[in-house]
Amino acid sequence: MIKNILLGHGSGGKLSHDLITNLFVKYFHNEILDLQTDASVLQPDSDLISFTTDSFVVDPIFFPGGNIGKLAIAGTVNDLAVSGAKPLYLSASFIIEEGLPFKDLEIIVKTMAEEANKAGVRIVTGDTKVVDRGKCDKVFINTTGIGALEAKRKNIGMGTEIQPGDKLIINGTLADHGMCIMSVREGLGFQAEIESDCASLNHMISQVLEVSDRVKFMRDATRGGMATVLCELAESRNLGFEIDESKLPVKENVRGICELLGFDPLYVANEGKVLMIVGKEDADIVLSTLKKNELGKQAAIIGEVTDDHHGKAWMTTGIGGRRIIDMLAGEQLPRIC
């Protein structure tokens, strides 16, 4: 039984071989991975493929509601799903710090297998490197994903068909992941436990795409939060957005910690939230379809596309005032007075 990961586990020799067989193949196995070839042969049955990659370096690696492994699967699955694709295959590469407890790695790998299974994707290739203690922080994971994309959905990722009058819909509460990480990170000592919203959204999204052909744009609001998605899109497509702050769902405990630390939930990271822009005729059916899914119970229409103030997102605040929503510079930092 291995206790800690050693430099030798990344050497390509016997230790590496054992680690691959007894850990990665054990949990991830499927008929493609089991062949253990240098490159996997895939045959996606689709017009187009979507292709994406993401690296995960979250600290701490375990947090309420998930761990770095769950994040690594869900993150890449979501990037494919919000582009309108059906996620199919993932790679998983690990950079591990010497000394990482094997049982921690096993929990992470097991979680990844479970999340991949839940999302209906197969991990078909991977890699492991081990670096000296202190040269990386516990474990970093990269996942790359391939999804099948129907030609009619190829514009969803770009939002080229968005028009004034379209509705903005999100599938639930904002800022859960970011505030979860903040609250467990060393040094803050909060008692209240906030769960990350980390989840694979592909099934929920495909349910929506089954009932509506008027989903014109989707984006998962991760780093930078919902505000950043809105600002980037407004600017790049020269669109005007009108948001109603009173419609933004935020959990009470999340809002409390945001207030305390001076964060605006609109700018805080999510890991299980998608912004959809939908033709107004279909807004209700999309909303009700989202609400039927466990991950969309608190879905809400938060605003619409307007023909005004092109390039900018404006918000009616909870008290009826008006203000612009802007992109944030740097990280959010707490107030000093």
Binding site: T317, I319, R322, R323, C337
Partner: peptide, 17 residues
Amino acid sequence: VCGGHTMSIQKFGIPSL
């Protein structure tokens, strides 16, 4: 004369009211 007030005034859009 307090940065907290400045932020609140702008964040809630008070001048527009």
